[in-house]
Design a protein around this nucleic acid. Structure first.
Lengths: 330, 330
DNA sequence: TTGTACGCGTTATCAA
DNA sequence: TTGATAACGCGTACAA
C-alpha cells in the first residue's frame, strides 16, 4: 500500500474518502501521492468489508430491442448518478437463463435487482429468493403479481382504450386486434382495453377479429393481415399490441394494394423509431420506456438506501401518450 | 456457514467446487444441503481471495443505438457462456464520462475491458492505465491507434469502396458523400474509400459534394440534402456514412418531389432495422455488429485466461457486406 | 480424504 | 487527529 511512504493504513483509507477528522494537509498529501502512484482502492475488498457492492442487477429479455435498451438507458442514467453500477443479464425470454441470471446476481451480492420477466417464466421462486434475502427487487413492464414487490408499469388497459377509442373516433366500426402472448399481463390488459372499449361503444366483439400471436413479430403481423384481408368484410382498423407487428401489418396492407388509413387504419404500441419511418407514419402509444427505467432505478435505490423493513409493495404507473400520425389520419 | 450440520469449513468449499479429492458421498451431501438451505457462496469474498472477478467491463457511447446494443448482445452471449459477467458503462460520447467509467472499472477489478471510444475522446491515458495494470483491453469499431492493443474492426475503407463502386456501376457519375465526424478513424476511412474510388474511376472530386457532419443524424442528412438539391447540377447518388443519416436523406429527397433512386440513388451504412422499412428500402453496408461483439469478447477472454505477457496487439477484421436494395435499383 | 490456519485489501471500532 | 486491531467470507498450503 501507500502507507510505506508515511505511516498508517487506516489514515490513508480515511483521507481518500475525505473523512472530516483528518488533517487537510494530510488529506491533500495522500491524494497527491495516490495520483502519483496510480493507486486506486480495491473495491472488491471494500465491498466485502462494507457488505455492499453498489451494483444494481438488471434482468431483461433482450438488450437489442429498442424498448429494453431505452429502459436500460434510463436505469443507467439514474444509477450512475447515484454511484451505482449496472450489471445486465439477458434472459432471451428463456426461463432457464433467467433462473441462471438470478443465481449469478445473488452470488454477486448485488444491492438491488430490476427485472423485466421473460416470456416463458411462470414460476417465480428464483426471484422470490431476493425478497427472502432482503434484496430490493423492482419489476418493470413485464411484472409478476405473484410476488409482492415494487413495480413500474404503464396503464396498458387505459392505453388500449385510448387507441381503440381513437380508431372509433375516426369512423372505424370493424376493428381488429393483434394480441401479444397472453401469458403476459401487459398483453392481456391491452386486449381487455380493446374489448371493453368496443363493448362500451356498442360494437359487437367478433372472435375472428382477434388474432393471438406468439411474439408480435412483423411476420406474425403479416400473416394475421393476410387473414383479415381475405375476409368477406375485412376490418377497417387494426390495433396491434406492438410496433414491429404494426409495421408488418402496414407493409402487408400496402402490398395488397389497399390504403392505410383509407381502407384500413392502423395503430401500434411502443413508439419505436421505426414508427416514424414507415409510410404512412404509424399512430402509436408512447410508453416512455426511458422514464420507466429511471423510475425503476430510483425505486430500487431508495429501497437500498432506506433499508427499513419496509413499506409494502408500491406500484408506479408511468404516463403514456397516444401519438396520432398518418396511419389513422383520414 | 453450513458446516454446523456436519463438520469442516473448507470441505464445504471444496465440495461445492467439486474438488476431486473429496468423497463423492460428501460432495453430493454438501450440494444437497446447500440447496436446502439456499446457501450460495459469496462471490465478493471469493473474488477477493482469487483476485479475479469474472467481470468484463464494457465502455460504449450509447446503449440505445442499434449498432451498440447488437454488439453488446454478441459480447454478452460469448461472455456468459464462458462464465463472465458483463458490466456496461455508457460514455454518452463524453470524454469526462469515459474517464470516470474507466476509473470505476479499474476500481472494480474487472478482469478485462472492451471499449468503443467516445466521439470526444482524443486523450487515451485513462485507457492506457489498463495496459499498465496488465488488464486485457480490446477496442472495437471506434478504436484508437495510439495504444497498442487488440482491436476488432471492419474494413471501413473497403466497405466505402464497395458502396461507391456500386453507385458508379448503376450509372451514377456525380456522387456525393455525407461524412461522419473526422475525429474518428472509421469515418475518415469511409471518406477515403469514397475519394479513392472516384479517382480510380476518373471521376473528378468536388469539394462541394462532400458534406461533413457532427454526428450523422437524420437532421444533418436532411440539411445536407437540401444543399445538394439546390445545386445547379445536383448529385445523382449519395453515399452516407450511416443509416440514420441516409434515412433523413431519402425522406428529404422524396419531400422535394424527386425519386430515389431515379433522380438520386442512396447508400447507407450499418444495416439497421430501419433500412428495411424506409421506402425505397435502403442499400447499405452490413457491418455485422453482433459478430464484432462476439469477436471482441472471445479476444478479451482469451487474453484473460492465457495471461501470458503476450502476443503483441492483434487486429481482427470482421467481414462486411453490401446489401443491395431498392434505393439503388434503377 | 479432511481439518487448521492464514491472508486477500478494506473499513469499523476502539484506544491514544 | 491518528494508529492498532479485528473482521468481512472465502481459498489454499500444509499438516494430519
Amino acid at each position: 500500500m501507500a502507507e510505506r511512504l508515511n505511516v498508517s493504513p487506516s489514515t490513508i483509507s480515511r483521507a481518500l474518502q475525505n473523512h472530516p477528522s483528518i488533517g487537510k494537509k494530510m488529506t491533500a498529501e495522500v491524494h497527491k501521492l495516490a495520483k502519483k502512484l496510480g493507486y486506486y482502492p480495491n473495491s472488491v475488498a471494500s465491498n466485502l468489508r462494507r457488505n455492499k457492492t453498489n451494483v444494481i442487477g438488471v434482468i431483461i429479455p433482450r438488450i437489442d430491442r429498442y424498448y429494453q435498451s431505452s429502459a436500460i438507458s434510463g436505469i443507467e442514467e439514474v444509477a450512475s448518478k447515484a454511484g451505482y453500477y449496472v450489471i445486465i443479464f439477458q434472459s432471451n425470454n428463456s426461463y432457464e437463463r433467467e433462473k441462471e441470471n438470478a443465481r449469478m446476481l445473488l452470488a454477486s451480492q448485488a444491492d438491488g435487482i430490476i427485472a423485466c420477466l421473460a416470456l416463458e417464466t411462470n414460476n417465480y421462486d428464483h426471484l422470490a429468493v431476493f425478497k427472502e434475502n432482503n434484496i430490493p427487487l423492482v419489476f418493470f413492464d413485464r411484472v409478476c403479481y405473484e410476488i409482492e414487490t415494487h413495480k413500474v408499469i404503464i396503464d396498458d388497459f387505459g392505453a388500449a382504450v385510448k387507441a381503440t377509442e381513437h380508431l372509433i373516433s375516426i369512423g372505424c366500426r370493424r376493428i381488429a386486434h393483434i394480441a401479444g402472448n397472453q401469458k403476459m399481463a401487459i398483453f392481456r390488459d391491452r386486449l381487455r382495453g380493446y374489448q371493453e372499449t368496443l363493448k362500451k361503444n356498442n360494437i359487437p366483439l367478433e372472435e375472428e377479429l382477434i388474432c393471438f400471436t406468439e411474439d408480435l413479430s412483423s411476420e406474425e403481423g403479416d400473416a394475421a393481415t393476410q387473414k383479415f384481408i381475405e375476409m368477406q368484410v375485412p376490418p377497417d382498423g387494426i390495433f396491434c399490441s406492438n410496433d414491429p407487428c404494426a409495421i408488418g401489418v402496414i407493409q402487408k396492407i400496402k402490398k395488397a394494394g389497399l390504403s392505410v388509413p383509407n381502407n384500413i387504419a392502423v395503430v401500434g404500441f411502443g413508439n419505436t423509431p421505426t414508427s416514424l419511418i414507415i409510410e404512412p407514419a404509424l399512430t402509436t402509444i408512447d410508453d416512455h420506456a426511458f422514464e420507466m427505467g429511471q423510475a425503476a432505478a430510483r425505486m430500487v435505490i431508495r429501497q437500498i438506501e432506506e433499508s427499513q423493513e419496509n413499506v409494502d409493495s408500491e406500484t408506479i404507473i408511468i404516463q403514456n401518450d397516444l401519438i396520432i400520425r398518418d396511419s389513422t389520419l383520414k
